[in-house]
Amino acid sequence: MILMEYTYSKKTITLPNKELTLLDRVALDFVSRIDVQYVIVSGYVAILFGRSRNTEDIDIFIKDDGLESFSKFYDKIVSDGKYWAINTIDASDAYDLMTTHKSSLRFAEKNTLDPNFEIKFANKETDYYSLENALTMDFGIAGKLKISPLEIEIAYKLFLGSEKDFADAKHIFITFKESLDMDKLKAFIRELNISKDTANNVLGYL
């Protein structure tokens, strides 16, 4: 008998009566400061839906709308001193890191290192798809998070290929099996060149 309750439409997921972890609360607080288009991807998405593991970082893609827009984004996050940028000194330095060096910017609560928010500019088709088609995880009065569509999340985890990634993919797949768009999942698996053997071994028969 299935007792886990959720609603899942194309654009929104809810998990009624889910108790928020500290990780959820920090994530909700952090994204409430973001006023650019963003999407949370990777491990935290699996954890959000009950995966039994922890994480040091929450991966977020944002759109690159130039230095001016990025500076506003950066300054809004650090302005009240609750968060600090771990690996940069200011917005300009961070923008250079993310564009010239294609690296990521990390924010965390002041004087801590984790959980940290690993911010990257979207720069490939999978990133843009997740940004443009983000799902809203609705926590009711606690707030909302934009997360990657589950089908691409599963396929991308299969592509990454570590045991942790496979486990995340399997967890999301089993948890939402009845609601996923299987044709879409198969299309992502095909386009990411994931072998049928890998998909079948990890997810079971697709």
Binding site: K18, E19, G50
Partner: peptide, 16 residues
């Protein structure tokens, strides 16, 4: 999937 959201999330919250 066989457990209520309240129950599984309560356990997950303790660990995290």
């Amino acid at each position: 999937k066989r457990t209520s959201n309240r129950e599984w999330s309560r356990r997950q919250k303790i660990i995290i």
